[in-house]
Amino acid sequence: MSLPLVIRIRDALLHPLWRTLQRVGILRLGRLAQYPPRELKREVFPPSALAPEGLPSLAIVVPSYQQADFLDCTLESIFSQGYPRLTVAVQDGGSRDGTAAVLEKYAPQLSSCVSQPDGGQADAIVKGFVKVAGDIMAWLNADDLLMPGTLQFVGEFFATHPEVDVIYGHRVLVDELGREIGRWILPPHDAETLRRIDYVPQETLFWRKSLWEKAGGVNPRFHFALDWDLLLRFHRAGATICRLPYFLGCFRVHGAQKTQAQKSTGREEIHELQIREHGRAISADELEFWSRKTQLRGAWCAGLLRCGIRR
């Protein structure tokens, strides 16, 4: 029996149940607004166990363009953590919206601070990583946030799990004012799911420099699927990827994120990656199958988390 036929039969049988699960709010993974704004609830990480000298060095790049309203909060979310071995570069695309004043404020703490035209987000990330050094790497978009305590937790995890190359975690959704409006609880990592859809919250993603060099880093030709492309190449390079059951970052939802033209470009890049991975475009039915599977697995983990079980 073909997969499309299986999907149609399954949908006919389970569609009413699926709609009910969505209506009562059990299936939240993928939704950008889930409840009225509330105060951000901070994550509770395990107690620190390593001295500063036992932590790996971290390098973070912040690509930025016309994000003055959020950039201050983004940088504060990094530097307020007090991580002892940290280098941060801001690579701004020549903003004219007040970004310069924010960069001046943080200049003493930044390892590199450049504001000039570039080729887009991926190009800015590539240029930024040339100017910082660290055993562990990440980028944080200029409108997103790190959860307080994330860097210590991430540093300790990499220090005590040398077999793991890449980590990511759960995501908190926040509005323009930094108020919590939702949560994505991700299921444990699954390589076959990643080859078809990308639910990995980019602002929670950290990896080893050795893997970055092996995989070739970010491809500056991509503008929207750059993180999925990087993850797929990490996987091809033999990386051990692990989803950690903690909220590591906050994704800011606001009106200036994507235009209709940008969405079109995103679809083109996703199509290109599908062809590269599978030799064909993935049908809407197949995408729906993997998406629903991931949402159900995420809902199961959410249920466990409400019972105090992190899985």
Score class of each variant (00 low, 15 high):
142 A>T: 02
142 A>E: 01
142 A>Q: 01
142 A>Y: 02
142 A>M: 08
143 D>Q: 02
143 D>G: 03
143 D>E: 08
143 D>V: 01
143 D>N: 10
144 D>S: 08
144 D>V: 06
144 D>C: 13
144 D>G: 06
145 L>H: 09
145 L>A: 06
145 L>R: 15
146 L>E: 03
146 L>V: 00
146 L>P: 02
146 L>H: 03
146 L>F: 10
147 M>W: 09
147 M>A: 12
147 M>D: 05
148 P>Y: 07
148 P>T: 13
148 P>H: 09
148 P>F: 05
149 G>H: 00
150 T>G: 05
150 T>F: 01
150 T>P: 03
151 L>Q: 06
151 L>N: 00
151 L>D: 04
152 Q>F: 11
152 Q>Y: 12
152 Q>T: 15
153 F>A: 12
153 F>V: 11
153 F>N: 04
153 F>G: 08
153 F>E: 10
153 F>Q: 09
153 F>W: 13
154 V>W: 03
154 V>T: 09
155 G>Y: 11
155 G>C: 11
155 G>E: 12
155 G>D: 12
155 G>F: 13
155 G>Q: 08
156 E>F: 02
156 E>G: 09
156 E>W: 00
156 E>T: 03
157 F>L: 07
157 F>M: 01
157 F>T: 04
157 F>G: 00
158 F>G: 08
158 F>E: 05
158 F>W: 10
159 A>R: 11
159 A>I: 05
159 A>C: 13
159 A>V: 12
159 A>G: 11
159 A>T: 06
159 A>K: 10
160 T>F: 02
160 T>Y: 07
160 T>G: 00
161 H>P: 11
161 H>N: 15
161 H>F: 11
161 H>S: 12
161 H>M: 06
162 P>G: 13
162 P>E: 13
162 P>D: 13
163 E>T: 13
163 E>A: 14
163 E>Y: 04
164 V>T: 14
164 V>M: 12
164 V>E: 08
164 V>N: 12
164 V>G: 09
165 D>S: 06
165 D>H: 14
165 D>L: 06
166 V>A: 08
166 V>C: 12
166 V>E: 07
167 I>T: 12
167 I>F: 09
168 Y>P: 01
169 G>H: 10
169 G>S: 10
169 G>F: 05
169 G>T: 09
169 G>R: 10
169 G>A: 10
170 H>M: 10
171 R>L: 15
172 V>I: 13
172 V>H: 14
172 V>N: 14
174 V>P: 07
174 V>E: 11
174 V>D: 05
175 D>I: 01
175 D>V: 00
175 D>C: 02
175 D>N: 10
175 D>G: 06
176 E>W: 02
176 E>G: 07
176 E>L: 10
176 E>C: 08
177 L>N: 14
177 L>Q: 15
178 G>E: 00
178 G>T: 04
178 G>Y: 01
178 G>Q: 06
179 R>S: 08
179 R>G: 09
179 R>I: 02
179 R>L: 07
179 R>T: 05
180 E>L: 05
180 E>Q: 15
180 E>H: 07
180 E>F: 02
181 I>Y: 01
182 G>F: 04
183 R>V: 10
183 R>M: 14
183 R>Q: 15
183 R>L: 14
